[in-house]
């Protein structure tokens, strides 16, 4: 999968990544892939894996993403029993089956999307997150089905849905099955829209291809973390097609915001509070402070 990743990650970032993994041993210290500052792991984790020196938002796992977003109690996973199959018996240089097993071993997950119901400062919500380390967060049948089950749960309970996307796009090894997940997830989201159930799409580094061109761009609010790489076609494909140098900051969150594709860019540390506040307004619920004051009275 690494070669495939190289297609969407610009060379600068990639080179730095390599140095970061080679020179600092796994353990208590981690090197920031952007500013190369050596960071104390417990401190970094307390900072939600955002570099305290340069504010670089590092990639985090799906489970950790949901863990830092949802309240600690009342969580229930949705669609955990949905597992991948290899209908096409797809084989390139490796068998898809073997790639799946390797990805499952590496991440401890069955596939690239985790869905959970839970609460956000006491407000019931459904949240889903992509696991980028699972085959580049690619969307196949399991990702689509889990996403739809999460959306249907949100619709049934009439509670907000929040998605944290991090994906290279559709999963090639599932061919047309994966392409159709774009239509499937988009149709499920349209039901939420028709029924006034809020959906917030949070794009984290990176979001491309079939995920970008379906569920990620369909939020009532489209939000991104700072400096995330987001687009339809990967920068290399575009460069090869148009044979032009890409403009500075092309396909970064800030570029998308200025071109009107995003509502806002949110720092990872603000995510809970700001999304909570937005969703409370959309759901006609009082702000958290008022709730606390009332409780104190």
């Amino acid at each position: 999968m690494s070669n495939w990743l190289e297609k969407i990650v610009p060379s600068l970032v990639r080179v730095q990544r390599k140095t970061s993994t080679s020179s600092v041993p796994e353990g208590l210290w981690k090197k920031c892939p952007k500013c190369e500052a050596v960071l104390y792991r417990p401190e970094l984790e307390k900072n939600l894996d955002v570099c305290p020196k340069c504010d670089h938002h590092m990639r985090i796992s799906a489970r950790r993403r949901l863990d830092v977003f949802l309240d600690a109690e009342n969580r229930a996973e949705i669609g955990a029993n949905v597992e991948p199959s290899d209908r096409l018996k797809f084989k390139d240089s490796k068998r898809y089956k073997d790639r799946l097993v390797a990805a499952q071993k590496e991440t401890g997950e069955k596939d690239a999307l985790i869905a959970m119901s839970g609460t956000l400062d006491g407000m019931p919500v459904v949240a889903v997150a992509f696991e980028f380390n699972f085959m580049g967060g690619s969307m196949g049948s399991v990702v689509g089905e889990r996403f739809v089950r999460a959306a249907q749960h949100a619709l049934k309970e009439r509670i907000p849905l929040i998605c944290f996307a991090a994906s290279g796009g559709a999963r090639m090894q599932e061919a047309l099955f994966s392409l159709m997940q774009m239509a499937k997830t988009s149709a499920a989201l349209e039901k939420l829209k028709q029924n006034g159930v809020p959906y917030i799409s949070v794009m984290t580094d990176p979001v491309f291809g079939g995920v970008s061109a379906s569920l990620a761009m369909l939020g009532d609010l489209n939000v991104a973390e700072p400096n995330a790489l987001i687009g339809f076609a990967g920068p290399r494909v575009i460069e090869q097609t148009v044979r032009e140098k890409l403009p500075e900051g092309f396909q970064r969150s800030e570029f998308l915001l200025s071109h009107g594709a995003l509502d806002m860019i949110l720092h990872r540390k603000q995510m809970r509070e700001r999304l909570g506040s937005i969703l409370r307004k959309l759901s006609h619920l009082p702000e958290i402070k008022e709730v606390q004051e009332e409780a104190e009275e």
Partner: peptide, 26 residues
Amino acid sequence: GAWPGIDAEERGQSEAIAFNLAVMSR
């Protein structure tokens, strides 16, 4: 396929496709 160009990205190729998928479903 959809055009993979700078102009297409600037004008929201992903959003345009996604929006069609959603609306066509209903």
